[in-house]
Amino acid sequence: MKTEVLKNFIVLEGLDGAGTTTQLNSLTAKLIEDNLTVFKTFEPTDQNIGRLIRSVLQKKISLEAKTISKLFVADRYEHIYGKDGIIEHLDNGEYVICDRYLFSSLAYQSPDCDFDFVYNINKDYPLPEYLFFISTPVEVCQERLDKRGDEKELFDAKEFQKQVVSFYNKALEIYKDSGINIQIIDGNKSPNDITNEILNIIR
């Protein structure tokens, strides 16, 4: 696997409810305290294609599984290469922290689309220097989602999430020799402890 690895590009992954968004905000704040310039971002994006994807996730519109998978690919292309995208910020000497990236596609879309299909349409994207997978039990994530009181999104069902875990594990195995620094973080720790663990690795 010879895909380019982008220095200072940091990706957070985990099940819905694992705490990736909390860590996105905490890590950004801490790195800014270190006098670093940080661009925090997420997928799907809040651009046009990303907003369409969110409508699908919120069950406002229904599309075929492979259509959804290809929409993520299109959103990702703009996210990486478009104006104000990840490459532009990295070229400006910034750190980029992203809540979800192509690994989420492999985990969440493979149950309906086949892993090889999802892998092949994403395999040419550049890779992050660091991938932090926040490993949190499905049951814990479900409890957190229930406490939020939000309506469950398309991929939030418990049995589906169990499939997602297996595909995350498969993705982590495939990319273990890709040049990414892959770290599995115990999601049962406190958010502050998780932040400090990640910071110690980055620093």
Rank of each mutant, 00 (worst) to 15 (best):
M1H: 09
M1I: 05
T3D: 01
V11I: 12
L12F: 12
L12S: 05
G14P: 09
D16K: 03
D16P: 09
G17R: 02
G17L: 03
T21M: 01
Q23G: 08
T28R: 12
I32K: 14
V38D: 10
I49C: 10
R51P: 00
L52Y: 12
L52Q: 13
K59Q: 13
K59W: 02
K66I: 12
T67F: 04
L71G: 06
V73I: 13
E78F: 13
Y81C: 04
E88S: 15
E88H: 13
V96N: 01
C98I: 08
D99L: 04
Y101M: 11
Y101F: 15
L106Y: 12
A107G: 10
A107I: 11
S110R: 05
P111T: 11
V118T: 08
V118M: 02
I121P: 11
F133W: 07
S135F: 03
T136L: 00
V140T: 15
V140D: 08
E143F: 02
R144Y: 03
K152Q: 14
E159H: 06
Q161W: 10
K162T: 00
Q163M: 13
F167V: 03
Y168W: 09
L172N: 07
I174M: 12
Y175I: 00
D177H: 10
D177G: 00
Q183T: 14
D186P: 04
N188I: 10
K189A: 06
S190N: 09
